[in-house]
Design a protein around this nucleic acid. Structure first.
Lengths: 148, 148
DNA sequence: CAATGTTACTATCAAAACGAAACTAAGTCA
DNA sequence: TGACTTAGTTTCGTTTTGATAGTAACATTG
């Protein structure tokens, strides 16, 4: 991918994918939302090569999805915690999961519960303006004014 | 990535990413939702190498996101149209775009309008069970029963 | 105080994927 | 006959990945 071009792309989807369009990064964010914070936790959970994990964590940190935090002074140890931007990525992960549940749901599957009600959630994307479920009304992709 | 392991992973997010965790595939799906259907349209829109495009279109077709359709008999020409699974992927793309809009929104940006109202949409993911916005209540990831 | 363990990495290297450019195949149009 | 269109394939050099092993700093155990 030519990241340079994509970062300047006026499409917000492309801009997000420019640094997140990669399976490992998204799985790391999933695990971060589940509560993992440490290098070895991610490594064991994902079965990822440490070289790749190092790079992905660095990118996610540079891009402001994760933050390094010292959790022990002696010995000095750092963990990775979600930033606001990282936490706000949860809806994306949840919608990906919803699609996977519907179309790749054969066999045993993790499900996601509301802690208070104890029931499985039913994720739906809506347009807050009209209240309509995304996909039920026609949408139009409008190019930005090119006077900049 | 070791796709074999991930496809058997009980996490619906991982299952989706096993074949879609790639920038080009997601951008192709975005373009398909915008209305592109033909090889050269995707190639020009994305600036993607034809080798890569061929492979991505083949994967997306095998995985049931796109369908090949003959649009001309003489000469024989095929186009790629979204399947139901592909159309149902729209909420994921919209939520990715919403995140990108919020956190990578500098400069000119494509925006997405409801055709009827003409207003920009405000995408939000909610849990249809409680009606709560995703991210406002605690969630729990529940492992499947391991009695298979 | 030496041996072992823990955590978070880095080094090395073969294999796979990517990207750019040129080329092909089947047919249409003038 | 020759140019054009569409949907690719071929080739090849570069980059990225994945597996395995090793390192650095410190803690713990005997």
């Amino acid at each position: 991918m030519n990241d340079k071009n994509i970062c300047a792309d006026p499409c917000p989807i492309a801009r997000c994918l420019a640094f997140l369009g990669d399976t490992w990064s998204l799985l790391i964010l999933r695990d971060a939302h589940i509560g993992l914070t440490r290098f070895d936790q991610f490594r064991k959970s994902l079965g990822i090569a440490p070289t790749i994990l190092t790079r992905r964590l660095a990118t996610l940190t540079e891009e402001g999805m994760l933050e390094k935090r010292l959790y022990s002074e002696r010995p000095p140890r750092e963990e990775y915690v979600l930033t606001a931007a990282g936490r706000d990525f949860l809806p994306v992960l949840i919608m990906i999961g919803a699609w996977g549940h519907q179309y790749r749901g054969e066999g045993p599957l993790v499900h996601i519960q509301d802690v208070e009600t104890g029931e499985d959630i039913k994720p739906v994307a809506i347009d807050a303006v009209t209240g309509a479920v995304i996909g039920t009304r026609s949408l139009r992709f409008v190019m930005p004014e090119s006077d900049g």
